[in-house]
């Protein structure tokens, strides 16, 4: 582990050690695709029903389509590069986001609950999300797109560790 020793400057956050499952890219792509399809359908519907032949709407549709394709292809891979997680004996550390990024740290001693959640799509892909909550209303850490076994194991391990450490600073 790197010891920064409280030095001023020259410090930055390093990425957490573990990536999520590669299939998470597929999961994110599906989510993105469904979003884009809904949006395009709405605009397309508007263009079709529009009382006068509206070229602007058609152009908007094309632009949105191109942007949507870009979103569906780029965003999941970008996320896959960013989303990472790590646990040490004293803390859980996650990174998430793509354009905007967010890093969260929660000490083991302050963890209250550990949940795993699997939506239908995640289940089909054999993925799981792990959510770690603390006493703060603002502090849950979520690790999306974990391999199912990894998630179950992680949740079990975190639960065991947190049961051993009392107190949650409420």
């Amino acid at each position: 582990m790197i010891d920064v020793g409280g030095t001023e400057g020259g410090v930055r956050l390093r990425a957490p050690r573990h990536r999520v499952a590669r299939r998470a890219v597929l999961w994110w792509s599906c989510q993105a695709a469904s979003r884009v399809v809904v949006l395009l359908a709405a605009v397309g519907f508007g263009a079709w029903w529009s009382p006068f032949p509206n070229r602007a709407l058609v152009i908007a549709l094309i632009v949105l389509g191109v942007l949507g394709i870009g979103y569906v292809t780029v965003m999941p891979w970008w996320r896959y590069r960013v989303h990472r997680w790590e646990t040490t004996e004293s803390a859980v550390y996650t990174a998430a986001g793509w354009l905007s990024r967010e890093w969260r740290v929660a000490p083991m001693s302050r963890i209250q609950t550990v949940d795993t959640a699997r939506g239908p799509l995640q289940r089909a892909l054999g993925l799981s999300s792990v959510t770690v909550t603390t006493a703060s209303a603002a502090g849950p850490l979520t690790i999306d797109g974990l391999e199912r076994d990894v998630a179950a194991d992680l949740a079990e391990r975190l639960t065991r560790t947190t049961q051993a450490t009392p107190g949650d600073a409420t």
């Binding site: 582990m1 790197i2 010891d3 920064v4 409280g6 030095t7 020259g10 410090v11 930055r12 956050l13 390093r14 990425a15 957490p16 050690r17 573990h18 990536r19 999520v20 499952a21 590669r22 990472r84 790590e86 646990t87 040490t88 004293s90 803390a91 550390y93 890093w103 740290v105 000490p107 974990l146 391999e147 990894v150 194991d153 992680l154």
Partner: peptide, 28 residues
């Protein structure tokens, strides 16, 4: 709390990420 996850700007170690999730999990 944060120090284990900080690194000096000069040291470029952030890409030392395990690519296989199974092995990384074992190590964790």
């Amino acid at each position: 709390l944060l120090s284990p996850f900080l690194e000096k700007n000069s040291e470029f170690t952030s890409e030392s990420v395990d690519s296989l999730d199974g092995t990384s999990h074992e190590r964790a």
